[in-house]
Amino acid sequence: MSEPLLIACPHCHARNRVPEQRLGQGPACGRCHQALFTAHPLALDAAHFDTHARDSDLPLLVDFWAPWCGPCKMMAPHFEAAAAQLEPQLRLAKVDTEAHPALGARFGIRSIPTMAVFLHGRELGRQSGAMQQADIVRWARATAGL
């Protein structure tokens, strides 16, 4: 039997140990008792970014965006729909670079939308420009090695 995975809760950000074989069974957070997977991207800020990008055993697909960005708005429903396809193998998150400029600067985000995949604090890959749902899913799976 393999070691349980550490998974950060999208609601309270507590880390939970979940056996890999239970990922698809709707596990709940041990602290707040809400679902660990919601099939929706979570909004991340600087306070909780590392909990999901570094301290979780799930790859994290992040959409760096801004509210004034037209291509970001066009891609948003595709990114939302991709969450339903990619969870529970990946966690999806959005970072508003306007509200959290330090995160954009930390990762050298020069254009938006930019997506990046992280695992254990290491960036596995990045892609700039708006994408459709199928392309997001294909790119994320290939980049995360799924």
Rank of each mutant, 00 (worst) to 15 (best):
L5A: 04
H52W: 07
A53G: 02
V137Q: 10
A39Y: 13
H120P: 01
N16Q: 06
D55R: 14
F107I: 04
H52V: 09
P77M: 05
G129Q: 02
L103G: 10
P71S: 04
R126K: 14
I109S: 07
R54F: 15
M74A: 15
A39W: 15
G104C: 01
R126M: 10
C9F: 10
H13Q: 10
Q34W: 06
L90A: 05
G70T: 15
A116P: 08
P67W: 11
S128H: 08
E87F: 03
L60K: 06
W139D: 07
A93W: 14
D135F: 02
M1T: 15
P77S: 12
E123N: 09
H120S: 05
P88V: 07
M115L: 04
I109W: 02
E98C: 12
S2A: 15
P71N: 00
S111N: 09
D50V: 04
A76R: 12
H33F: 00
L58N: 07
Q132A: 13
R138D: 13
R22P: 02
G108L: 06
L146W: 01
V117G: 03
A8K: 02
F64K: 07
T97Q: 11
L124P: 02
Q25Y: 13
A47H: 14
P19R: 06
R31D: 12
R126Q: 09
F37A: 09
F49C: 07
W139H: 06
